[in-house]
Simulated scan of single mutants.
Amino acid sequence: MSDSAPTLYEWAGGAEALERLFEEFYRRVREDEMLAPLFRRMSDDHPKHVAMWLGEVFGGPKAYTEHRGGFPAMIAQHRGRKIRPEQRQRWVQLIQEAADEVKLPDDPEFRSAFMAYVEWGSRRAMANSQPDAKPSTRETVPIWSWGAAPPGTA
């Protein structure tokens, strides 16, 4: 195996693949009675913004930071939303279904890294959405990688 593994962004298929993912995901969200209320004021370009976010997190261009305000702006989007555990779990379920539908890579290494971020990110979003959440001191977008199993390893 090469010393320079592709980024998760590259492995996923880049911006186009992530935009397809979030178009499908938010189509499902809009139809979901548990999640639709959380997203009723969602702009039409929200899926593209979230694709930019995940692209940056997965090692792609720093588009979210450059055009959307980076980590502090993303945290601000969750403030006061009071996300409940069952809503977070449903969010995770729908993103898994959307990933399958748009045919994101389904190799175990990628899906493990993808779902690790989905779990971590959704739990952070839920925590940051609570009324008593302390402001984050983080200034930069977290960069996610392969973890223990880079692509093509058993």
Results as ranks from 00 to 15, higher is better:
L94V: 11
N128D: 15
A148R: 11
I143Y: 03
D100P: 00
P85I: 09
E139K: 15
R124V: 15
R138T: 11
A99K: 03
D107V: 14
S122Y: 00
Q89N: 13
E139W: 02
Q93R: 11
K103F: 02
G147D: 08
A127W: 00
A149F: 15
W146V: 09
W146G: 12
A98K: 03
P85T: 11
D132Y: 05
S136H: 07
A113W: 07
L104R: 00
I95N: 03
S129F: 04
P142F: 02
R90G: 04
P135K: 08
L94I: 13
A99S: 14
W91K: 05
P131M: 00
I143L: 09
Q87P: 02
E101Q: 09
P108F: 15
E97P: 00
W120L: 12
G80K: 11
L104Y: 03
A127F: 02
R79Q: 14
Y117Q: 15
A148E: 12
R84T: 07
M115K: 04
N128S: 13
D100F: 02
A133I: 11
S129Y: 07
S112A: 14
P151G: 09
A133S: 13
Q87D: 01
A127H: 06
V118C: 13
P150T: 08
P150A: 12
K82T: 00
F114Q: 03
V92M: 07
D100W: 04
A116E: 14
D106C: 06
P135R: 11
K82S: 10
Q89I: 06
A99C: 07
D106M: 06
R124F: 04
E97H: 05
D132G: 08
I95T: 03
I95V: 15
P108Y: 11
A113R: 03
P151N: 10
D100Q: 06
W91V: 04
A127V: 13
Q89K: 13
V102P: 03
E139S: 13
R111S: 01
D132V: 15
Y117L: 13
A127K: 12
L104Q: 01
A148G: 13
D106L: 04
R79H: 05
D107A: 10
K103C: 11
P150K: 10
E97C: 00
W146L: 07
Q87E: 11
E109T: 12
V118I: 12
Q93G: 04
P105E: 10
M115S: 05
A113E: 04
R90M: 07
N128E: 15
R90P: 02
A148I: 10
A99N: 05
Q89F: 06
F114E: 01
G121E: 09
Q89W: 06
E97K: 05
K134G: 00
E109D: 09
E109R: 08
P150G: 12
P151I: 12
S112D: 14
S122C: 04
W146R: 06
K134E: 08
R90W: 07
R84D: 00
V141S: 05
W91R: 05
R90F: 09
V92Y: 08
S136T: 14
